[in-house]
């Protein structure tokens, strides 16, 4: 009786095969599989897939924002660089312009000074000339006056004759 228990099929050692069990097992298993697919595994797989997508999406979003941040940083950096160089250029040009302006101002001042000097010189010259002319006139009139006075005093008849003769002589020689 004990050994009989170990014999294969002892549990089914009645008469023939339990086809009913077999069919029942088959049907129950298939029903179980279908029901679980609908009620358990399907939703579970759905949520797992959803999570997978969520994680993948988050990762790609993080990646994207990282790239974007990097790009922005790069942009900011280049902008800063640009601004710095621009400021440098501005300072340079301002310096240059200042130099030019200084030169210009100096040149203008110099020419102005020259011109003023020239005009002053010119005026001095003119004044001098005018003064000279006035003196000359004065001298001429004075000399004439003196001459007339001298002549009035010195010229007598003899001298007058001599002078006239002299002139006549001279005029005759030249001919």
């Amino acid at each position: 009786m004990l050994t009989n228990s170990f014999v294969l099929g002892a549990a089914a050692a009645h008469s023939g095969v339990n086809w009913g069990d077999i069919i029942f097992q088959l049907v129950m298993f298939i029903i179980l599989m279908v029901l679980l697919k609908i009620f358990a595994w399907g939703p579970l797989m759905g949520i797992m897939k959803q999570r997978e997508e969520h994680v993948a999406g988050e990762i790609s979003a993080a990646e994207q924002s990282r790239v974007e941040a990097k790009k922005l940083l790069e942009e900011q950096r280049s902008l800063l660089k640009e601004a710095r160089s621009e400021a440098q250029v501005l300072i340079e040009s301002a310096k240059k312009q200042g130099d030019i302006q200084r030169e210009e101002i100096i040149a203008v001042a110099r020419t102005e000074a020259d011109r003023m000097k020239e005009s002053a010189k010119l005026e001095i010259e003119q004044q001098k000339e005018k003064a000279v002319a006035a003196i000359r006139e004065q001298v001429a009139s004075l000399s004439v006056l003196i001459a007339s006075k001298v002549i009035e005093k010195e010229l007598n008849a003899a001298d007058q004759d001599k002078l006239i003769n002299e002139y006549i002589q001279e005029a005759g020689d030249k001919r």
């Binding site: 009645h14 339990n18 069990d21 069919i23």
Partner: peptide, 9 residues
């Protein structure tokens, strides 16, 4: 006509 083992069922 099918044998059923009720314990199995």
């Amino acid at each position: 006509g099918l044998q059923f083992n009720l314990a199995n069922i």
